[in-house]
Amino acid sequence: MIRLYALVAAGGFRRHATYRVATVAGVFTNTVFGFIVAYTYIALWDQKPHLGGYDQAQALTYVWLGQGMMATVAMLGGGFEDELIERVRSGDIATDLYRPADLQLWWLAGDLGRAAFHFLVRGTMPMMLGALVFDLALPDNPFVWIAFVFSVVLGVVVSFAVRYLVALSSFWLLDGAGVAQIIGLVSLFFSGMLLPLNVFPGVLGELAKVLPWSSLLQIPADVLLGKHTGWGLVGAYAFQLGWAAVLLTVGRLLQSAATRKVVVQGG
């Protein structure tokens, strides 16, 4: 069974690896955005050095990391969920529900494969280009990098779990694309993509830090920037794992409700 999902994941990787033009286009876009945001952060950190506990180099690292993570955790969507929403819309989903493989694990495996490809190419390229122009604060310690990658994997799982819920919502809401767009914007904001969460003031900051989306960018970024070490790192992982578990479970419940709905209404 595990072999099957490994194959699905490899398929997800390969499939995205064939979209060569799309990959170049994506790297280009991430780089353009990286430049635009980097300059606004420079203006901000010039005015207020050490804002949110970052120095300017760390803030810029955060910018370029964000551009790399954007595709990896499919922040604005564009992963498997478009396809899943389309299958719900067209009614093809009915056949999926009777497949011997587990629907959620199937899509998760595929999405992890996709994320792996995006991390390797779209995650690294903009960062390298950014490092040519700006001073970045990248760690020398290889263990920090390993810890970071692990945190990214957890971030992808949380992101998947959220997008799975979005996709399943189209069983009831029908305008799946509209919901996906809203959630995309929400995750952009609450992941820390627009502004690091530790710059968020007061209650909003406290709230943003405990919502699942902080797993997508803020936590991996803080791991890379060395803000989470020792037990702090364990705590960060536990937070990501906790959200992953909760959201995946909700996804299962919603999935069985959707299955019942399909059985009753025939799609």
Binding site: Y19, V21, A22, V24, A25, F28, T29, V32
Partner: peptide
């Protein structure tokens, strides 16, 4: 010319 390049226009 490049069907997969829709993301470029987002830039």
């Amino acid at each position: 010319w490049a069907q997969d390049a829709s993301e470029v226009q987002n830039s």
